[in-house]
């Protein structure tokens, strides 16, 4: 849980207050929540669906869902940002798996980024939770780790991963399961 950094704790509390106000159908609070949360959610969705018009449509839908479901948010289950992020990722992946998009550009991804995610341990603003996530990611073999990160950040399906790594789909599934099991054991052990 993201309670390590005072700055982040303040942000969490602010987001929670806004969500509670949204649950009471407070439209001013809804606009404020949109202002603080939409840029991150938009980036998350866009990276997954890789199509701007679709990402805008999904973002709109996600905020309507936040408006309608705000009363179901429970701070005990995790921070407000994580709750909204889950809605956005789930919606983006639901749409991605049901429709076939023509991505605006297939060459948009930055392979370096995955290296960066795994290697950059020096950012002080990062949460404690995140530091152990980084550490645990490093314990996974590079290709298998990249599968997890490509799936998380860019919505890659097993088939797309199979093409990218030139491996059978079953191998990818094995990699994913092995990586996820290592990640789970490492993270749960650290907690």
């Amino acid at each position: 849980m993201s309670r390590g950094d005072p700055l982040l704790v303040t942000e969490d509390v602010k987001d929670e207050a806004l969500l509670f106000a949204v649950a009471r159908q407070d439209r001013v609070a809804f606009r404020s929540l949109y202002d603080v949360a939409a840029p991150k959610l938009f980036a998350t969705i866009l990276r997954i669906v890789r199509n701007r018009a679709a990402a805008e449509e999904i973002l709109q839908d996600v905020f309507l869902r936040i408006w309608q479901n705000a009363e179901r948010f429970s701070p005990e289950a995790g921070p407000a940002r994580a709750w909204m992020n889950t809605i956005a990722r789930n919606r983006a992946i639901d749409v991605l798996r049901q429709r076939s998009f023509v991505p605006v550009s297939g060459g948009d991804s930055e392979p370096d980024m995955y290296e960066r995610v795994a290697e950059d341990r020096d950012r002080e603003a990062d949460m404690i939770n995140n530091a152990s996530l980084r550490h645990c990611l490093e314990t996974i073999e590079a290709s298998a780790r990249d599968c997890v990160l490509l799936a998380y950040y860019e919505g890659y399906s097993r088939e797309e991963l199979a093409r990218r790594f030139d491996r059978p789909v079953n191998t990818i599934k094995t990699w994913l399961h092995r990586s996820l099991a290592v990640l789970r054991d490492c993270l749960d052990g650290a907690a």
Binding site: M1, A38, P39, A43, E56, L59, M113, Y153, L183
Partner: peptide, 21 residues
Amino acid sequence: ESRLAGLADDIAPLTPPDHVW
């Protein structure tokens, strides 16, 4: 969801166009 939540911190924000709101 809780284990992977930290990954989201690495995503750089991108302001959506005004017509979405």
